[in-house]
Design a protein around this nucleic acid. Structure first.
Ligand code: FES
Ligand code: FES
Lengths: 141, 141
DNA sequence: TGATACTTGACTATTTTGGTCAGGTTTATA
DNA sequence: TATAAACCTGACCAAAATAGTCAAGTATCA
């Protein structure tokens, strides 16, 4: 069970961006340099973030990206959703009565993984981008 | 972020085994049939569980595996550890001051992933094999 | 009319996963 | 004591997921 770097990068980049929010659009090139993430990869990630209306793009010279909502209203859940970093503990559908890989009943541990998923999602629901920026500022003082 | 089936199978198999614990050794063949897990794969998994002293093997005809500790004392953490299903949110060492892939400092989000890891491990620390067996019995009544 | 920066889609190398396969060894029991 | 059940080990492999790269644009500002 591990976190993929797509999710990690998305959050890193957004925290970076949020720090400058309201001042200028931030270019991916800058984020790439500051955070050490491949520019091409960032583009893929931001394309998804834009489609989910988490960021807005500003084209042309001096362009870049800006947040599309207040940092306080962007939860980790939203970010992870946008880049397809889902928490997947099981394959079987929650609603269906069938088990994994087409079995007729749920397996012995189905309920456990369900609980786990909820437990993790709770964490993501609570944390907002704003929280992260603030925590980061505090640590620097 | 997803759970691998090695971890899932390990827990499934142990719950199955625990239900018969104290009566007979349970053969992997039986578990394989009941739970629909490849026998060869189960052998790999149980080899690890044995090395970490979670189960004991009984060789020969009528052999199989038995729990090596009380079900109450086997936490999910122990099981996951044994089969190398670790919760990995970051690459960088917790203790080291260096960041991921050799960067000189920790990244903006390091602390966040650390919290997440703790949050997940809390869940695994609380659940014991015994809990799972009981929950399962209740649901059948 | 550059230069900057976003946009898109296809492609690819590496790693991880989820196994299989072959060939053992041990031991109860018929 | 033979034999079959069951554990034991290590090598091997195909498919999927990951973590990108590459190429060829388009929009906008100075
Ligand atoms: S049936 Fe849902 S996890 Fe096995
Ligand atoms: S430095 Fe530890 S997560 Fe980035």
């Amino acid at each position: 069970m591990r976190l993929t770097s797509k999710g990690r990068y998305a959050v890193m980049a957004l925290v970076d961006l949020a720090r400058f929010d309201g001042i200028n659009p931030v270019s991916l090139r800058d984020i790439s340099l500051r955070q050490g993430i491949s520019l091409d990869y960032l583009e893929q990630i931001f394309s998804k973030l834009r489609k989910k209306e988490i960021v807005q793009s500003v084209r042309g010279t001096q362009g870049g990206y800006i947040l599309n909502r207040k940092a306080k209203e962007i939860k980790l859940t939203n970010i992870f959703d946008a880049v397809d970093e889902k928490v997947k503990t099981v394959q079987c559908k929650k609603e269906s009565k069938k088990g994994c890989n087409g079995k007729s009943t749920k397996c012995l541990t189905h309920n456990l993984w369900d609980e786990l998923e909820t437990h993790i999602n709770n964490f993501f629901d609570k944390k907002s981008l704003d929280d992260l920026v603030k925590e980061n500022l505090e640590r620097r003082l």
